[in-house]
Design a binder for these strands. Sequence first.
DNA 1: GTTAGCATGTAAGGAGTTACATGATTTT
DNA 2: AAAATCATGTAACTCCTTACATGCTAAC
Lengths: 209, 209
Amino acid sequence: MANRGAALDMAVLGLLHESPMHGYELRKRVNALLGWGRVLSYGTLYPCLKQLLRKGLIEPDTASTTPVEGGGLTGRRARIVYQLTAEGKEHFVQLLGHCGPSAWDDDSFGVHFAFFGRTDSQTRVRILEGRRSRLEERLDGVRLALSRTRERVDSYTLELQRHGLESVEREVRWLTELIDDERSGRSPGAPQSTNRGRASARHRTDPTT
Amino acid sequence: MANRGAALDMAVLGLLHESPMHGYELRKRVNALLGWGRVLSYGTLYPCLKQLLRKGLIEPDTASTTPVEGGGLTGRRARIVYQLTAEGKEHFVQLLGHCGPSAWDDDSFGVHFAFFGRTDSQTRVRILEGRRSRLEERLDGVRLALSRTRERVDSYTLELQRHGLESVEREVRWLTELIDDERSGRSPGAPQSTNRGRASARHRTDPTT
DNA sequence: GTTAGCATGTAAGGAGTTACATGATTTT
DNA sequence: AAAATCATGTAACTCCTTACATGCTAAC
């Protein structure tokens, strides 16, 4: 019970690990972090924070949290700035190390990847490979279905399946490149704020955009 | 109330429109139709069928449904073959015609696309264009977030965002090609079972696979 | 002075999953 | 005789969204 989307927990913990934040800010950062198409709603975020608080993984930062009384200087209404507790940090590090099947899930993988900068290369490779074989299973399933239905299906259905297949194949190639980079030490490595070597150059899109 | 995943309803209706089927078969076909990554479970499908039955959109095909008594000949256990009612067919045609915002959603779009063979070119173009602008909005959001955070973020987060961006951009280009094909009459058109012209040739992947 | 953005929450409900319950038939 | 596949369903639970409730501050 109470798994509250392991991916969301991890995203929140990871962002608070970087710097303390209040809920409103956190929501924007989570939405930016994972280009999840869908956006995180307050109805999900606040209950999540409440639960993390109850578990003792986060706590209000009393220094930064604006008290409603005395205000004047701040110019903002009361808000609760959260920070990680010691257990919270510990828990996040543990989540980071988990490289089992649960980390290959669509959402979970995205969050793990976003925090790769805090992991060691070995864990990264394990997650990358796990994710890849997960996608390859998917591929096999779709290819099988495609070969069985082929000819019995109209061109649009076929085109849809073909497009889906191509997307997943592309993702597999992406993972393979990342794994190769990782193994040969060409990986982005440390969480530097300089933008030299933002992942291998061959991934780049039009830089003038 | 009771929207029961408009996308699922439509997929079921559409498949039953092609030929009557029982639940077990239907599940496999739905899973093949939409390379949804996730698979449809019985816990979703059967309640859905129940509801469509209650709404009078589908009915058991008494001729094909195996009665448990008297069996002998069939060699299979009792199963319920469903077919569309007149209202069901009507409803499906209506769903097919809906080209408003709800049809641009990830799932909904996939189902609409899969049944494009039953629609007119005008509807197809409207759905394709709606879907494209939906994705372009998404793109704008991500680009904005990217430009605001750039430099403050480590290379892995950046790479994740870049990859997400590229995927969506690729999808936009795919839609643009389809729209062009549609406008110039180069579209796959009718739901033929011959495989001549399975969408424009330039979409093809390695045919030897 | 009203709209837009900041900020925190709750309640109701939708959509789907897992796990269970049941049992026949076919293959190994 | 066991295991896999066919076949239908229900119950409990999870995750998340929408819509609501509340109120402050900044900009137009």
